[in-house]
Amino acid sequence: MIENFLDSAYVKSLPYLWEGIQLTLYITIVGLLLGFILGAITGLGRLSKVAIFRGISTVYVEVVRGTPILAQVLFIYYGLTAVNIGELTAAIIAIMMNAGAYIAEIVRGAVYSIDKGQHEAGRAIGLTERQTMRYIVWPQAFKRMIPPLGNQFIISLKDTSLFSVIAVGEVLYMAKQYYNTTFEIFETLIMVCIFYLLITIPTSIILRRVERKLDV
Protein backbone atom coordinates (compact mmCIF):
# COMPACT_ATOMS: atom_id res chain seq x y z
CA MET A 1 0.00 0.00 0.00
CA ILE A 2 2.56 2.55 1.10
CA GLU A 3 4.96 1.27 -1.52
CA ASN A 4 2.26 1.76 -4.15
CA PHE A 5 1.77 5.29 -3.00
CA LEU A 6 5.47 6.09 -2.99
CA ASP A 7 5.70 4.68 -6.48
CA SER A 8 2.77 6.76 -7.84
CA ALA A 9 2.67 10.18 -9.47
CA TYR A 10 1.56 11.69 -6.15
CA VAL A 11 5.15 11.35 -5.04
CA LYS A 12 7.17 10.82 -8.17
CA SER A 13 5.92 13.95 -9.94
CA LEU A 14 7.06 16.12 -7.06
CA PRO A 15 10.62 16.87 -8.21
CA TYR A 16 9.26 18.05 -11.57
CA LEU A 17 6.46 20.02 -10.01
CA TRP A 18 8.81 21.59 -7.49
CA GLU A 19 10.76 23.17 -10.33
CA GLY A 20 7.53 24.54 -11.75
CA ILE A 21 6.34 25.75 -8.36
CA GLN A 22 9.47 27.83 -7.92
CA LEU A 23 9.02 29.43 -11.31
CA THR A 24 5.30 30.04 -10.69
CA LEU A 25 6.04 31.85 -7.44
CA TYR A 26 8.89 33.79 -9.03
CA ILE A 27 6.74 35.04 -11.92
CA THR A 28 3.86 35.88 -9.58
CA ILE A 29 5.94 37.84 -7.10
CA VAL A 30 8.14 39.73 -9.56
CA GLY A 31 5.20 40.38 -11.88
CA LEU A 32 3.04 41.68 -9.03
CA LEU A 33 5.74 43.93 -7.58
CA LEU A 34 6.22 45.53 -10.99
CA GLY A 35 2.46 45.51 -11.46
CA PHE A 36 1.99 47.36 -8.19
CA ILE A 37 4.34 50.12 -9.32
CA LEU A 38 2.58 50.34 -12.68
CA GLY A 39 -0.82 50.18 -11.00
CA ALA A 40 0.04 52.86 -8.44
CA ILE A 41 1.23 55.22 -11.19
CA THR A 42 -1.74 54.63 -13.48
CA GLY A 43 -4.23 54.50 -10.60
CA LEU A 44 -3.11 57.96 -9.48
CA GLY A 45 -3.04 58.87 -13.17
CA ARG A 46 -6.74 58.19 -13.41
CA LEU A 47 -7.31 60.71 -10.61
CA SER A 48 -4.85 63.23 -12.06
CA LYS A 49 -5.87 66.71 -13.16
CA VAL A 50 -3.46 66.39 -16.10
CA ALA A 51 -5.60 65.27 -19.05
CA ILE A 52 -2.86 63.37 -20.92
CA PHE A 53 -1.83 61.38 -17.86
CA ARG A 54 -5.45 60.63 -17.09
CA GLY A 55 -6.16 59.68 -20.71
CA ILE A 56 -3.24 57.29 -21.07
CA SER A 57 -4.04 55.62 -17.75
CA THR A 58 -7.69 55.19 -18.63
CA VAL A 59 -6.96 53.69 -22.06
CA TYR A 60 -4.47 51.29 -20.51
CA VAL A 61 -6.87 50.12 -17.80
CA GLU A 62 -9.78 49.74 -20.20
CA VAL A 63 -7.79 47.84 -22.85
CA VAL A 64 -6.34 45.39 -20.34
CA ARG A 65 -9.59 44.84 -18.48
CA GLY A 66 -11.54 44.51 -21.71
CA THR A 67 -9.43 41.79 -23.31
CA PRO A 68 -8.79 38.19 -22.19
CA ILE A 69 -5.50 37.57 -20.46
CA LEU A 70 -4.76 34.60 -22.71
CA ALA A 71 -4.92 36.93 -25.73
CA GLN A 72 -2.62 39.34 -23.90
CA VAL A 73 -0.08 36.61 -23.18
CA LEU A 74 -0.03 35.44 -26.81
CA PHE A 75 0.17 39.03 -28.01
CA ILE A 76 3.14 39.85 -25.81
CA TYR A 77 5.03 36.68 -26.71
CA TYR A 78 4.17 36.07 -30.35
CA GLY A 79 2.68 39.40 -31.37
CA LEU A 80 5.61 41.58 -30.47
CA THR A 81 7.99 39.88 -32.88
CA ALA A 82 9.93 43.09 -33.29
CA VAL A 83 11.34 42.91 -29.77
CA ASN A 84 11.70 39.14 -29.54
CA ILE A 85 11.66 38.63 -25.80
CA GLY A 86 12.15 35.33 -24.08
CA GLU A 87 9.17 33.41 -22.69
CA LEU A 88 10.01 34.13 -19.05
CA THR A 89 10.26 37.88 -19.69
CA ALA A 90 7.01 37.71 -21.63
CA ALA A 91 5.35 35.98 -18.68
CA ILE A 92 6.53 38.56 -16.17
CA ILE A 93 5.48 41.42 -18.44
CA ALA A 94 2.08 39.80 -18.93
CA ILE A 95 1.46 39.58 -15.17
CA MET A 96 2.76 43.11 -14.67
CA MET A 97 0.57 44.59 -17.40
CA ASN A 98 -2.52 42.59 -16.48
CA ALA A 99 -2.34 42.93 -12.70
CA GLY A 100 -1.23 46.55 -13.13
CA ALA A 101 -4.57 47.47 -14.65
CA TYR A 102 -6.58 45.84 -11.87
CA ILE A 103 -4.27 47.31 -9.22
CA ALA A 104 -4.77 50.71 -10.84
CA GLU A 105 -8.46 50.37 -10.09
CA ILE A 106 -7.71 49.22 -6.54
CA VAL A 107 -5.45 52.23 -5.98
CA ARG A 108 -7.90 54.63 -7.57
CA GLY A 109 -10.79 53.30 -5.51
CA ALA A 110 -8.84 53.39 -2.26
CA VAL A 111 -7.50 56.91 -2.76
CA TYR A 112 -10.90 58.12 -3.92
CA SER A 113 -12.53 56.62 -0.83
CA ILE A 114 -10.50 58.78 1.55
CA ASP A 115 -12.65 61.65 2.76
CA LYS A 116 -12.00 64.89 0.88
CA GLY A 117 -11.67 66.64 4.23
CA GLN A 118 -8.41 64.77 4.87
CA HIS A 119 -6.89 66.29 1.79
CA GLU A 120 -8.22 69.73 2.68
CA ALA A 121 -6.93 69.52 6.22
CA GLY A 122 -3.48 68.65 4.90
CA ARG A 123 -3.48 71.53 2.46
CA ALA A 124 -4.90 73.87 5.08
CA ILE A 125 -1.89 73.46 7.36
CA GLY A 126 0.35 74.31 4.41
CA LEU A 127 1.43 70.87 3.17
CA THR A 128 2.06 70.69 -0.56
CA GLU A 129 -0.05 68.45 -2.77
CA ARG A 130 2.73 65.87 -2.79
CA GLN A 131 3.23 65.96 1.00
CA THR A 132 -0.52 65.68 1.52
CA MET A 133 -0.64 62.57 -0.62
CA ARG A 134 2.43 61.07 1.02
CA TYR A 135 1.69 61.72 4.69
CA ILE A 136 -2.10 61.93 4.81
CA VAL A 137 -3.93 60.27 1.94
CA TRP A 138 -1.63 57.45 0.87
CA PRO A 139 -1.10 55.80 4.30
CA GLN A 140 -4.85 55.68 4.86
CA ALA A 141 -5.55 54.52 1.32
CA PHE A 142 -2.88 51.85 1.47
CA LYS A 143 -4.60 50.18 4.41
CA ARG A 144 -7.75 49.89 2.35
CA MET A 145 -5.77 48.43 -0.56
CA ILE A 146 -4.45 45.46 1.40
CA PRO A 147 -7.51 43.17 1.12
CA PRO A 148 -8.06 43.70 -2.63
CA LEU A 149 -4.31 43.44 -3.27
CA GLY A 150 -4.30 40.07 -1.54
CA ASN A 151 -7.15 39.06 -3.76
CA GLN A 152 -5.18 40.16 -6.81
CA PHE A 153 -2.26 38.02 -5.62
CA ILE A 154 -4.51 34.96 -5.68
CA ILE A 155 -5.82 35.82 -9.15
CA SER A 156 -2.37 36.48 -10.61
CA LEU A 157 -0.98 33.30 -9.07
CA LYS A 158 -3.64 31.28 -10.88
CA ASP A 159 -3.17 33.29 -14.09
CA THR A 160 0.44 32.10 -14.34
CA SER A 161 -0.92 28.68 -15.36
CA LEU A 162 -1.75 30.27 -18.73
CA PHE A 163 1.94 30.58 -19.48
CA SER A 164 2.05 26.88 -20.25
CA VAL A 165 0.84 27.95 -23.72
CA ILE A 166 4.11 29.77 -24.36
CA ALA A 167 6.18 26.94 -22.86
CA VAL A 168 7.11 28.66 -19.62
CA GLY A 169 8.09 25.94 -17.19
CA GLU A 170 5.62 26.90 -14.49
CA VAL A 171 3.86 24.28 -12.41
CA LEU A 172 1.08 23.31 -14.83
CA TYR A 173 3.51 23.07 -17.75
CA MET A 174 5.80 20.83 -15.71
CA ALA A 175 2.81 18.68 -14.78
CA LYS A 176 1.91 18.24 -18.43
CA GLN A 177 5.48 17.29 -19.27
CA TYR A 178 5.32 14.70 -16.53
CA TYR A 179 1.99 13.07 -17.36
CA ASN A 180 2.72 13.07 -21.10
CA THR A 181 5.26 10.36 -20.41
CA THR A 182 3.62 8.51 -17.50
CA PHE A 183 -0.09 9.07 -18.34
CA GLU A 184 -0.90 9.55 -14.67
CA ILE A 185 -2.94 12.61 -15.50
CA PHE A 186 -5.35 12.45 -12.55
CA GLU A 187 -2.71 12.05 -9.88
CA THR A 188 -0.44 14.74 -11.30
CA LEU A 189 -3.20 17.32 -11.65
CA ILE A 190 -4.40 16.60 -8.13
CA MET A 191 -0.92 17.53 -6.93
CA VAL A 192 -1.00 20.72 -8.99
CA CYS A 193 -4.33 21.73 -7.47
CA ILE A 194 -3.09 20.95 -3.98
CA PHE A 195 -0.16 23.27 -4.59
CA TYR A 196 -2.43 26.15 -5.62
CA LEU A 197 -4.72 25.58 -2.67
CA LEU A 198 -1.80 25.44 -0.25
CA ILE A 199 -1.02 29.01 -1.27
CA THR A 200 -4.48 30.43 -1.85
CA ILE A 201 -6.36 29.16 1.20
CA PRO A 202 -3.85 30.41 3.79
CA THR A 203 -3.69 33.72 1.89
CA SER A 204 -7.47 34.03 2.17
CA ILE A 205 -7.38 33.26 5.87
CA ILE A 206 -4.61 35.77 6.53
CA LEU A 207 -6.46 38.39 4.51
CA ARG A 208 -9.63 37.92 6.49
CA ARG A 209 -7.65 38.34 9.72
CA VAL A 210 -5.91 41.45 8.41
CA GLU A 211 -9.23 42.86 7.27
CA ARG A 212 -10.74 42.40 10.70
CA LYS A 213 -7.71 43.93 12.36
CA LEU A 214 -7.60 46.96 10.06
CA ASP A 215 -11.35 47.32 10.36
CA VAL A 216 -11.72 48.51 6.80
Binding site: Q118, E120, A121, R123, A124, I125, G126, L127, Q140, K143
Partner: peptide, 20 residues
Amino acid sequence: INEVRSQVGMVFQHFNLFPH
Protein backbone atom coordinates in the same frame (compact mmCIF):
# COMPACT_ATOMS: atom_id res chain seq x y z
CA ILE B 1 -0.24 79.16 -1.68
CA ASN B 2 1.31 76.79 0.85
CA GLU B 3 3.07 79.69 2.55
CA VAL B 4 -0.21 81.58 2.80
CA ARG B 5 -2.09 78.57 4.12
CA SER B 6 0.50 77.96 6.79
CA GLN B 7 -0.29 81.45 8.12
CA VAL B 8 -4.06 81.08 7.94
CA GLY B 9 -5.38 78.39 10.27
CA MET B 10 -8.56 76.56 9.41
CA VAL B 11 -10.88 74.58 11.65
CA PHE B 12 -13.46 72.42 9.92
CA GLN B 13 -16.97 71.43 10.88
CA HIS B 14 -16.06 67.74 10.77
CA PHE B 15 -12.62 68.20 12.43
CA ASN B 16 -10.76 66.31 9.69
CA LEU B 17 -8.18 64.97 12.09
CA PHE B 18 -5.77 62.45 10.60
CA PRO B 19 -7.04 59.10 11.94
CA HIS B 20 -3.78 57.24 11.33
